[in-house]
């Protein structure tokens, strides 16, 4: 159910050891370029380029990446269809024949632009999520003066999410061995309800226990980790120049293709 979790790839991909700041900078800046674009050309280019980096540079298995892509792809496609039909003004270029529905030029263009921007933005998010473990992203946030208390809660939450996945899996298997999900629809919902209600309770119980044991080992509200962080100064100049050039080319592309429309 949850075995093939994304966190595993974040911990062991081919560019795992590249400077964290470099990856975060690349992800965020490219995302912003994709967002400010007014034509679908650059966001789609970004999607293809970043997907190539994910697949061939970070060496994420294509099967897993494709599965990951289907989520936003479904959303984006629904958006595209919805906007093409409902978000346009002007005359129809294609009519469905029923319900007086049709596709308009402005609706099609808007839908395609949003589709492209969603896919471009998604690729950057996937890049960050698949190549950088979350604890390292936390350490970047810490450097950007993200409040300490919130970071503390975040780390605990991160741990609790994994506890609850473990517990959910355990309970799910226990229920299955007792025919929990295969004895009719009513039983299915009953089992589901039991499972979800107990996830919270079990997680909390375990969380309380671990908190007490942490306190008995001198926990004073700060989790100290022993790892040598990357620093922003550790990025090689050559890489920085490449990054800036890349973003510059993309920005010029945004400017040049600004008025491009598919229809």
């Amino acid at each position: 159910m949850f075995e093939d979790f994304l966190d595993r790839y974040a911990q062991s991909n081919a560019i795992r050891n590249v400077n964290t700041y470099y990856k975060v900078l690349f992800g965020i800046i490219t995302m912003i370029v994709s967002l400010v674009s007014t034509s679908p050309v650059i966001p789609l280019t970004i999607f293809i380029l970043v997907s190539f980096i994910i697949l061939f540079r970070a060496k994420i298995p294509a099967k897993f990446y494709l599965k990951f892509v289907t989520v936003p792809l479904t959303f984006a496609s629904i958006t595209f269809i919805f906007m093409a039909f409902w978000f346009g003004t002007g005359s129809y270029i294609y009519t469905l024949g029923v319900f007086n529905l049709g596709v308009t030029v402005s609706g099609f263009n808007l839908g395609f632009l949003v589709f492209a921007r969603m896919m471009g933005g998604f690729a950057c998010l996937a890049f960050l999520g698949l190549t950088t473990p979350l604890p390292e992203i936390f350490s970047v946030l810490e450097d950007f003066k993200f409040p300490e208390e919130l970071l503390e809660i975040t780390m605990l939450m991160y741990r609790y999410v994994f506890i609850s996945i473990d517990e959910a899996l355990r309970m799910y298997q226990a229920q299955q061995t007792r025919l929990g999900y295969s004895a009719g629809l009513k039983k299915y919902y009953q089992s589901m309800g039991m499972l979800i209600a107990n996830i919270f309770i079990r997680t909390w119980t375990i969380g309380e226990k671990s908190y007490v044991s942490m306190q008995s080992r001198c926990y004073n509200g700060k989790l100290n980790t022993m790892d040598d962080h990357d620093s922003i100064k550790g990025i090689p100049v050559r890489n920085l120049v490449v990054l800036l050039l890349f973003e510059f080319v993309l920005s010029v592309g945004v400017y040049l293709t600004g008025s491009f429309r598919v229809l």
Binding site: I78, E152, I153, M157, Y160, I199, W204, G207
Partner: peptide
């Protein structure tokens, strides 16, 4: 602290169980 973090984890889990709906 644990209750606060579990409430957060609860929001995380609940809002991860999504079905596609309106545009985007």
């Amino acid at each position: 602290t644990p209750l606060l973090a579990v409430c957060g984890a609860f929001i995380f889990i609940m809002s991860s169980l999504h079905v596609p709906s309106v545009t985007g």
